[in-house]
Every structure is written in C-alpha cells, then in structure tokens.
Design a protein around this nucleic acid. Structure first.
Length: 1081
RNA sequence: GCCCAUGUGGCGGAAUUGGUAGACGCAGCAGACUCAAAAUCUGCCAUUCGCAAGGGUGUGAAGGUUCGAUUCCUUUCGUGGGCACCA
C-alpha cells in the first residue's frame, strides 16, 4: 500500500470536522491550557510560508498539551481592520468589507489545508460589528475612567466627579502631576464645558491636540513610514507637521505597573529589555532657568537626569516647537529662527534623531541665568531636542554629553570642564565616577553622590524638584481613516459625549469615497447625514425609509425563492428549534420569517420590521445556495440597514435560553438605533442647542488586537465582552506566539488594556500573557536576472563581473531551481514579456540567477505559497519541514529544497507499517530491549524538545528513531503505536491514519502521551573523551561508578596518554563524572 | 543615531548548565538494484599536510578569563528587526 497523503489528509480533515474533534468547551472541571497566536492581518496576497511558522509551533504545542490531558484553547481569528484594505478600496472602489471577507476566506482555506486544530466556532474578526461593539465598549470604559494616584489604579470617573463636587481638587504634597487646583464650590460653579475640560485631563481615553504628518497635496495625514526624506512616499509631495485634535490613551499612567508587571511574566530578557527601554524610565530633576529679557518672569523648565553637572552647563537648548521660542527670541534673531523653524517642520522625528552627525540649530539671542552661579548662558533651539520628551528643553553640558559636545564645537561655544582629567577635550565623557571641579559647593564630590546634594539644593532654592520621567508618551488613538472602529463619541460645543452602551455597536456607515474628508479629517467626515446629528433634519435627508421587502429582478427572485423553499423543507434540527421559538411573534412581539429571500439572499430568519437577521451557522458555507447567500451578503445587507447575528448549532442545542435572550436584546437594540437614526431628535437630551457631530476619526489597528484574547474565551456572548466565569477559567494566555515586530506596540497596549479591565474588576488577572515565544521572521530569498541595459540580452549571473551596466530584475522564485533559471517558464512569464529575449548562458549551458535575502513580498516575486507545498508533499511533510528549518525563534530565509528530505522521512515511517507491494508489514511481536530503548530514548527527547519549543531537534529525533527502527527491521505494534502518539502533534494526519490501521478505536488525538521509562536507558559504562591540555586525543571506556583516583590510574595506563606525557607526570587530571577527562601537562 | 537579536561546512542547522564542534537533513561524489528511469539501499563528505598511522588549523574579526570557550567578558565588523499613523 502506498502512502497517498492527499487521500489520507483529505479524509481525516473531513472526519475531524464532522465529529467536532477540535471543538473546545469551557469545561471548568478539566485543567486548562491557553495557546494563542498573534492573529494575522488578512492581506490580499494570501498566506505565504512565513505565516504558518508560528502557527505550526503553537499547533504542535496545543496538541501536545492535549495529549497530556489538558483542555486546550487554541483559537484563530483575523485582525481585519487596516490600511491596506482601505488603500485598495481607494484604488479600485471595492468596499474594504468585501475584499476583507474574500481575503479571510482565502486565509481560512489555506490554514485548513495545513491541518490546524482550531475551533472555528470561536473565530473572531476585529471588523465584525459584533466584535467591535465590545472594542467600542471597552473604549467607553477607558473614557469613563481615571487613574487614581493614591490607589495606583483605574477608577470610574464618577468617583472623581463626586470628589470634585464635595472636596474640590486641592494641592497635595507629592502629587505627580501638577494640575489646576480648585475648591468644591469653584467646581460646582464651573460651566459644563470647563468641568469637562478638567475631566478630559484625567480620562484614560482622552482627546487633545497633537501633531501629525500632514500632506497638503494629498489632503491627508500620513504614517511615518509613508514619509520618506520629508516628502510623501506616494507622489513625493511635501509633508509637514500639523496640529489636530486627536484621541490618546493615557498609557503613561501605567508606566510603573507595566515595568513591574514584567517581573511576573515569562518573556525573553531581550523582550523585557525592549519594553523597558521603550518606557524609558529615568530619574532626574526638573529645574528652572530664568531668562534675561526685556519682559521679566520668563522661566525655562529643563529636565535633566544629571543635576550633578549643573555647573558645567554652557547653553540651553529648546525644542523648536517649544512654546517659549517666540517669546524669548530677540528682534535681530527673528529671521534666522523663522528660517530654522521652516526647516525643522519638514523633518521627520526619525530623521531628527538619526542624523546626529548633521548638526543644526539656531541661537535665539536670549540668555538664561544659571541659578547656581548667576552665569548668563545662551539659549538655542535645535532639532535634536524633542518637544514630547521631558519638558522639551535641556541644559547642555558639553563635557559630559556627546551631542552637546558636538553642538558646542560646531557653533563655537566655549566648554566648561567640571570633571578634570576625565575630559580629554576631544570628546565628551558621560562618566558618573569623576570628582567634580569648578562646581562651587559640589567641588570634591563624586558625581554619583553629588546628584542627591544638587537635587536637595534645587528643592531648597524652590527652583525645581526631583522628577521621574518616562520616554514613553501617551498612545495616539485616532486615525483619519475609514476602515477602523468608529468612536462611540459625539461632539457638541467642544464637549465629547459618549454613546450609551445600548447604542453599540456604532457601525461604519457606507461611504461613496474612501478619500480624505475636509481639513484632513477622515473619510467619515464626508458623510454629512452620518456625522451631523444636529436636530431636525427630515427623514429623507437621513436616507432612512420605511423598511420592507427588497426584491431583485423577477428571474433572480424565482431562482432564490426556489432555493428558499428547498431550504424550508430541509431545515436543520437547530433551525426547527429556533423557528418554533420565534414564530407567531413569540419573541419581543416581532414577526419573523424563515428562509425569506431578500434580493439574492436567503437568511435563515429575518424580522423585516426591525431589519434583524438571525443565522444559525452550524455546517455553514456548505450548500451552493449558501454560497450565493454568503457572497458579499454582510456588506450589502448592512448597507440596507440590516443587522446580522449568528449562533452556532451548539449554542442552540445547549443554551437555547441565552440565544433567545440575545435575539430579544438585539430587537431592543434595533429599536433604539432606529430611534437614533430615524427620529428628528437623534440623541435625546444630549444636544445643547448647537451643532451635534459624530467623531469622524476611527480607532487605530491596535484597538481590536488589544483585547482579542479575551473574546476567544466567550466569542458568541451578546451580553458582555467576555463572561467573567469564562475569563476566570481560561485566565491568562499560557503561551503566546508571535513575531518580535510586535515587541513594544501591541504587547504594551494589550498589557495596558488588561490592567485597566483588571482595575475595573471586569477580569481577574492583570497580565494577559504568561509566556511569550517570539518566532523569527521567514525572509524571502529573491532571485534576479540581469539584462544588459538598453538591450534584450540576459546574462547568466556567474559570467558578469560588474552589475553596473545591467538591469537587475526580480524573477519569480518558483521558476528557479536553486539558482538555475527555467528559461522556458521565464519566456512565458508576464504574458510573454521576455519571450524573445536572448540568453547568454554559462559554460555549463545554464542560466544562473543572482540571490538576495529580502522581506517576503508579492512585489519581489519571492513568496512561496504553502498550498502548493501541501499539494505536492502533503500537510504533514510541510508542517514538519517548517519546523525542521531551524529554531522557531530564529529568522531565516525560506528555501524549499530541503523539503524532500522530510518527505523521505515520512515515507520511511510509512514503510515501517506498510510495504508498497506486500501491504501490511506491522506485527504483534513482543518488542526487544534494544527496540524499547530506541523508543524510550525518543520519548524522552521528544518530550524535552517539545517542552522547550525546540521543534527542529524534535523532528531530527523522529528521523533518528525511524532510521534506527528501520535498521533493526522493527515493525512491532508495541513500539510503533507509541511512536504514533509522539508524532501526532507534528504530523497528525499520517498518525491518525496509521493509528487506525493498527486497529485502534478512537482518535489518536485523544491518546495519552506515553510515559518514559528511565530504567530502560540505564547504562553502566561510558566512552569518556580524554583530552590532553584541552585537546581531544582519545576515548576510554570506563565504568560510571568510578571515582577520581581510580579514573586517574586508568587514564595514566592508556597508551596514547602515555605517548603524550613522554614520561613526565601530569600537572593535574580533571575528571567530570559522566562528561570528560582532561590531562594537564 | 538609539534599542534588541544574530554571525558555526557548499546550504538549513546541532552542541540544553563552560566539557568529544559539525547531530539530523539538503546538495554533491562513489557504488548496489534496474533494459532504463523513478523509488530504495550502502559508503564518503569542515579544511589542510600525509600512502597511511597520525598531526596542524577551524564556530565573523581582534584580545581576555579558564585545565577547557561556539558558550563568559572587552573591543570591532557584517546582517536582520523595532523606533510611536504598516500590521
């Protein structure tokens, strides 16, 4: 019997699906284990071989844990909001929801081919209104919370309001944030707007003005990586900084807890280091320098981590954006300063920090007074000082800071040396170990010790205080885009008013254009009828008409109606249950129809008056008619004002009451939102007479991904983001796998959200991820062909000596065997663009390509599609090969060549059970000791390797084991059966097939991991390596229980050792039991 | 520029806590089987000197610690990732 992987994999994938082998229940009695992958953004290019690396690793670990008796949650979903879909929409006019839906379908089918053990009933998509409803809801929790500095946690803002109303906000010593002080009476007399402004200063999600990259020509805000050398990547238009109202998350309040939390989690040290650096906690002092100027009382606050160097200050530097720049600039410096500001405006932050060798700056003409010695020091502005960090002003100490030093040299500012011989005059020395000189009362002190002395003096003089500073800034939370979560916020008279929870989800409205709105606002600003909620527009203007039947062409209707009838006849048991419950206006008094055609679509149930569709999805996407229904249905129906809710068969069977309650709730919600959009007072009691407008920006990509791990625990809950029982059971993610590119952003945000939810007692843990495993990035290995410039002649890479004079062209890696180009395929490529080219081959008659390692991307033609590999070799081979490539953590270029070796191994394994000609070869003979030894050595190694995520060495262990069993001609069920269980996590399909061939009832997925028996591996002797002076010279077999003295005697008798000793006595003999022997001469 | 990772045969990699460098696999070479091919099996495979026995060199480079360093320390070079609106 031959190994027919196609048949085997197909059959078992079907079987597993049919009997719900991967279904996960919240079984509170079993020990749980939660394995999570960073979910993918469903890009149009589909899955490439880089994606599955981490997924396979997590799949292996999940299956392994299952075989160890755990209830394992290993879900998958899609981070489906994002810029690429929107840009594609901008180019093609296709709605992002449509393209996203399509991309997800591709991703899912690709993932399924590889045979992952996902419970798709738990799938989530961040762009699904039933998901982002809760993203918006959590945003409201953030908006309605503040950070209490006494309890160091988030509390409802209502508590703060109560405090203001009764006690006001009076100064307290040790308050970390200086803020406005007021009494209760004052507070109560403030206008609503004034009160809201103060509260905005404390909310965890808040709005303020912030700078963005603004491109006038494109009329849009650009991401940093869309800006190259100060101009837009698209079109090369100038880009400048612009202030706009933005939403932020006050993540800085959590800086200390984010730092402390790192002690509790198993992240790699480097990952922790990166997060620490990002947070950038530093302890120093803030102090004031008074500016000598015509107007008195201008004081510049600087932040320094080195107050001990205060006598070495030779100048001050302000960030060009600093508020005081205009004020202190002298008349004669006005012009150069203005010119410099124009220059800085065009520079990105990255450029400003990166190009330190390019020194720039401008003197303001003003002088500040050093409060310690009264010295007048010049005040400059320079781009290397950033407005967002510290106070946006620094005191420059050239002898101790290299950037200050270079600046002083460049502009000929004289340098004061306060560290004596530690300063060479050639470069700065940032030491803390020098004895201070030229420093008045600090003279003779070690710098380290001088810090606190200087700090005390600063506080004593009342010119500043000790201050902890963070490099981390509050997280920008708005994007001027369409394809993201709309903010559940409306604005009136400059006050932000949150929607009520019942009004969620606030769904994305249909837009005609994905282009930017006026003044750099997002595309949503273009839809007046959506943004403008000012009372009294007519229903017609709102575009809401009475709901009713929506029919398509007669022919189409007939066709759909036939399907509908058929469906009614063939209703599933679950559909029948629901139908019995909702018919005759039993739920919410609303009329439901079943299998009712709406244009080309046939929803399971629909309430036309409330425009609510209920889908029972069980075996969904199966029938042909369902496909018609599926295709683009969500988008279209949404545009028609329908809301769609889905339940699984499982939910109907096991939790009917909850399902019905959810339907009822949905009807109520529809009623509310109908009021909101239909009536002439959209938001009763909220307008204060003037304009009422919706927030038009949307949330950033990381919003939905900051809490998705919670939704998987309870994905279909209509009442809450995640039931507390579910989150208490599943608790933290035990193992989180993803790339280092998310090292700071995503991980810090989700850690913060988790802490806020914990503070608000919505979940019971404050770190989301217990252990983090970073997978490396699979790079593409690009291939190039070389065309002589201006001709149509392609030269083999090995015969050209100099690449200049040639056009280097990416060629599809799939047309290249190693480095040899398949010329015929190349001729046909790109619609025959190279059909008639001439090929200059090397001596061997081959065309050799150039090779480079780059990021895997469609445009570089270096992507390799996992589907093709699964088709050619099977999923089991593909899975094991990806693991065999190297450690999961390592980045490496993809190379398909080695996959043959893994495939050979799998076939060799097959032949232990079946012979191509003879058929079944396995038998029931009793295993010998040596066979058991091979097996148990493998059990031990596979278990250890899997536990430490060393999947590549585990695969090689399998190879060794199979090689040895084949050499021993061992076909014994007793041994092979155990081997199959070991193999299941890695190659589930073949394992299941052979497991069944051996006559086992039940699935190998549920087989218990075999216990390792150490007794079988006990050895009495060891072949010791013997080194002379650290160099290996020979091996000696010795009993393991020998002691040092006995060993020394035996070693000295050895012929080879004696040869090297040349009659001398050794200086010493080092003996490490069970390891090695070293003779030192 | 700053932060993090990383560098071992022709190639992917192994060496888990400082203890036999190159497991396992790819490619290559030689052979068996075959009319032939595929498949399969056997052997060789860091480099250099040597017929061999055996020796020298060798984990990006330079130094150091150690009986012993791919592993620890210092310096340095190359590559990859991140740097706040890509995800």
């Amino acid at each position: 019997m031959e190994y027919d992987f196609k048949k085997i994999e197909n059959q078992w994938q079907k079987t597993w699906k049919a009997n719900g082998a991967y279904k996960v229940s919240n079984d509170l009695l079993k020990p749980k284990y939660y394995v999570l992958d960073m979910f993918p953004y469903p890009s149009g290019a589909g899955l490439h071989v880089g994606h599955p690396l981490g997924y396979i690793a997590s799949d292996i670990y999940s299956r392994y844990k299952r075989s160890k008796g755990f209830n394992v949650l290993h879900p998958m979903g899609f981070d489906s909001f994002g810029l690429p879909a929107e840009q594609y929409a901008l180019e093609t006019g296709q709605h992002p929801a449509t393209t996203t839906e399509k991309n997800i379908a591709t991703f899912k089918s690709q993932l399924d081919k590889i045979g992952f053990c996902y419970d798709w009933d738990r799938e989530i998509r961040t762009s699904d209104p039933q998901y982002y409803k809760w993203t918006q809801w959590i945003f409201l929790q953030l908006f309605n919370s503040y950070f209490c500095h006494t309890q160091k946690k988030a509390l409802p803002i209502s508590l703060l309001i109560k405090k203001y109303e009764t006690k006001g906000a009076l100064p307290k010593t040790g308050e970390p944030i200086p803020r406005k002080h007021f009494t209760a009476t004052q507070w109560n007399n403030f206008s609503k707007k004034e009160q809201e402004e103060i509260l905005m200063g404390r909310r965890l999600a808040f709005s303020k003005y912030g700078e963005v990259n603004w491109c006038e020509a494109l009329g849009t805000v650009l991401a940093n990586d869309e800006v190259v050398n100060g101009v837009s990547e698209r079109g090369g238009h100038p880009v400048e900084k612009k202030k706009m109202r933005q939403w932020y998350l006050r993540i800085t309040e959590y800086a200390d807890r984010l730092l402390d939390g790192l002690e509790k989690v198993e992240f790699s040290d480097s990952m922790k280091e990166m997060q620490k650096n990002w947070i950038g906690k530093s302890e120093g002092a803030e102090m004031e320098f008074e500016v000598k100027s015509q107007k008195s009382n201008v004081k510049i606050q600087v932040y320094t981590t080195r107050p001990d160097t205060v006598f070495g200050v030779d100048f001050l530097v302000l960030a060009p954006e600093h508020a005081l720049v205009a004020e202190i600039t002298t008349a004669e410096q006005k012009l150069p300063i203005a010119e410099y500001l124009t220059y800085v405006k065009s520079r990105s932050e990255r450029e400003r920090l990166a190009e330190v060798k390019q020194i720039s700056g401008c003197f303001t003409g003003a002088y500040a007074i050093n409060p310690f010695n009264g010295r007048a020091i010049p005040v400059w502005i320079a781009e290397y000082v950033l407005a967002g960090y510290g106070t946006g002003a620094i005191m420059a100490v050239p002898c101790g800071d290299q950037r200050d030093f270079l600046f002083a040299k460049h502009f000929n500012i004289s340098i004061t040396n306060i560290i004596g011989s530690h300063y060479s005059g050639e470069e700065a020395n940032a030491t803390k170990d020098a004895i201070l000189e030229n420093s008045d009362f600090l003279n003779g002190l070690l710098m380290k010790d001088a810090m606190s002395v200087a700090n005390n003096k600063i506080e004593e003089l009342g010119i500043g205080k000790k201050k902890v500073n963070y490099r981390m800034r509050d997280a920008g939370f708005s994007r001027q885009r369409y394809w993201g979560e709309p903010f559940p916020i409306i604005w009136t008279d400059g006050i932000a008013i949150p929607l009520d929870a019942e009004e969620l989800p606030l769904e994305l409205p249909h837009v005609d254009t994905y282009g930017p709105g006026p003044e750099g606002e997002g595309p949503l600003a273009n839809i007046k009828e959506w943004t403008d909620l000012t009372p009294n527009p007519s229903p017609k203007e709102r575009g809401t008409e009475a709901p009713g039947y929506i029919n398509s062409s007669v022919e189409e209707w007939k066709k759909t109606n036939a399907f509908a009838k058929q469906n009614r006849k063939e209703a599933t048991a679950e559909e029948d249950i629901i139908w019995q419950e909702v018919r005759d206006r039993k739920v919410g008094g609303c009329k439901f129809r079943r299998q009712h055609p709406i244009a080309g679509y046939i929803p399971d149930f629909v309430c036309l008056e409330k425009k609510l569709i209920v889908e029972i999805d069980g075996e969904y996407h199966n029938g042909e008619e369902q496909k018609i229904f599926d295709k683009g249905r969500e988008t279209w129906l949404k545009e028609q004002g329908f809301t769609l809710i889905r339940f699984t068969n499982d939910a109907v069977n096991n939790n009917l009451n909850k399902v019905l309650k959810n339907i009822e709730q949905a009807l109520v919600n529809k009623e509310n939102s109908a009021e909101e959009t239909g009536a002439n007072s959209p938001l009763p009691g909220r307008g204060v007479g003037g304009e009422v407008k919706r927030e038009t920006s949307t949330m950033p990509g990381y919003a939905g991904s900051s809490w998705y791990f919670l939704r998987y625990m309870d994905p279909n809950n209509y009442e809450t983001f995640c039931d507390r029982k579910a989150s208490d059971y599943w608790n933290q993610v035990d193992l989180y796998i993803g790339g280092t590119e998310h090292a700071v952003g995503h991980l810090l945000y989700s850690r913060m959200w988790t802490k806020v939810l914990f503070d608000l007692e919505l979940i019971g843990f404050d770190e989301p991820f217990k252990k983090l495993l970073n997978q490396g990035m699979i790079q593409g290995s690009s291939r190039f062909v070389y065309r002589e410039t201006g001709t149509n002649k392609f030269y083999s890479y090995d015969i050209i000596h100099d690449e200049s004079g040639f056009d280097k062209i990416h060629v599809d890696v799939n047309m290249v065997d190693g480095i040899e180009l398949d010329i015929e395929a190349f001729r046909k490529w790109k619609k025959g663009e190279f059909q008639n080219a001439a090929y200059i081959l090397n001596e061997g008659g081959k065309y050799i390509c150039g090779v480079e390692t780059e990021k895997m991307s469609k445009s570089k033609y270096n992507t390799v599609n996992p589907d093709e590999l699964c088709d050619k070799y099977g999923a089991d081979t593909f899975r094991m090969y990806e693991m065999f490539l190297g450690p999961v953590e390592a980045s490496k270029p993809w190379d398909t060549k080695g996959i043959e070796g893994v495939h050979r191994f799998i076939r060799k394994l097959w032949r232990l059970f079946n012979d191509d000609l003879k058929g079944k070869v396995w038998n029931d003979d009793k295993a010998s000791d040596s066979e058991l030894k091979v097996l148990h050595r493998s059990i031990k190694k596979i278990e250890e390797d899997t536990e430490r995520f060393s999947f590549n060495t585990a695969v090689s262990t399998f190879m060794i084991c199979v090689n040895e069993l084949a050499d021993m001609k061992c076909h014994k069920k007793e041994v092979l059966e155990k081997l199959l269980i070991l193999l299941t996590p890695y190659a589930p399909h073949i394992a299941e097939e052979l497991w069944n061939q051996l006559g086992n009832k039940g699935s190998v997925l549920d087989a218990i991991f075999p216990a390792f028996n150490p007794a079988l591996l006990v050895e009495s002797t060891k072949e010791y390596p013997v080194s002379i002076n650290g160099k290996l010279r020979t091996n000696i077999e010795l009993a393991l229980d020998l002691e040092q003295a006995q060993v020394e005697a035996l070693v000295l008798q050895n012929e080879i050792v004696q040869k090297w000793l040349e009659g001398k006595a050794p200086k010493k003999i080092i003996f490490v039991k069970n390891k090695m022997i070293n003779v030192v001469i």
